[in-house]
């Protein structure tokens, strides 16, 4: 499928580059609807007939790239159902997210995330599944999950560990602080920092550069350089599900849902 216009995302093949645009207000929160469309995208990308030789992922929303998982939806799913039932549902949801993220991570073509503004939680995890991150100077990267009594659940820790030193991972996880684009570049998360509003343009230029090289060689290089940390990813799902049942998490999610702040998970 060369183009798709969905409720939460769209894509279009432009001169060999498959551009994925995220556009679910307020900030591309990832719930069941978004996941279903991401799965469609991954299917289109993986199709043998796909003519894509590179991928660019970006958000057309002013707030940022993505604020991560839809926590309101998560909280609602947990209400009124027996624990075993909702926990099984959450595990199944996470496993679907992981399949989609792993497919993007292992896509046989180079992938570029063009990010700005909020790049939090699952949004950060989506960017980390891409091969390169190009950030405009408004971008902020954060794993706020520990504030809710959780760990990142969309593959964030294993992917971040793959890319940067463990000290950086601990700093981000254990303090829940956010990093600006320059700092994210300094620690090795971001490949290029560009001016405000320039990330997509630069990502397109980067994709055009990638297209100059032999596609098979690029795929081989990527497979060699970027192994998928399958065992750690499975362990992450287990730990996330264990933590999810704790009363502190329920309380944290309730506080989040009842907050009137625009972005209540921010410090």
């Amino acid at each position: 499928m060369k183009s798709y216009n969905g409720k939460m995302l769209s894509w279009e093949l432009r001169e060999g580059v498959l551009e994925l645009e995220l556009h679910r207000p307020p900030c591309n929160e990832m719930g069941a609807g978004m996941l279903a469309e991401v799965e469609k995208f991954v299917e289109a990308l993986s199709a043998k007939a796909s003519e894509a030789r590179a991928v660019v992922v970006y958000s057309s929303l002013a707030a940022g790239f993505s604020a991560g998982a839809d926590l309101r939806e998560l909280y609602q799913r947990m209400q009124g159902a027996p624990r075993e039932k909702w926990l099984a549902g959450e595990r199944a949801f996470l496993e679907r997210v992981h399949r989609a993220m792993n497919a993007l991570d292992a896509a046989p073509v180079p992938t570029v995330a063009a990010v700005h503004g909020v790049v939090f939680g699952g949004g950060f995890e989506l960017a980390l599944a891409c091969d390169l991150i190009i950030a405009d100077k408004t971008a902020r990267f954060c794993f706020p999950e520990l504030r809710l009594g959780l760990i990142p659940g969309f593959g964030g820790i294993p992917r971040l560990k793959r890319d940067v030193g463990n000290a950086v991972v601990r700093d981000l996880l254990l303090t829940g602080r956010s990093l600006n684009a320059q700092k994210a570049q300094a620690v090795g998360i971001v490949s290029q920092v560009v001016g405000e509003g320039e990330a997509l343009r630069v990502a397109r230029g980067t994709a055009a550069q990638i297209l100059k090289f032999d596609a098979e060689t690029a795929a081989t290089a990527k497979q060699f350089l970027k192994p998928i940390p399958h065992e750690e990813l499975k362990r992450e799902v287990e730990l996330f599900c264990e933590l999810l049942t704790r009363p502190a998490v329920q309380a944290g999610l309730k506080k989040f849902v009842e907050s009137t702040e625009a972005m209540p998970y921010l410090p």
Binding site: A63, E261, A262, M263, L266
Partner: peptide, 11 residues
């Protein structure tokens, strides 16, 4: 401003 805009200011 809200906390998101405060974060913009911080950046």
């Amino acid at each position: 401003i809200n906390s998101l805009q405060a974060l913009e200011l911080l950046t």
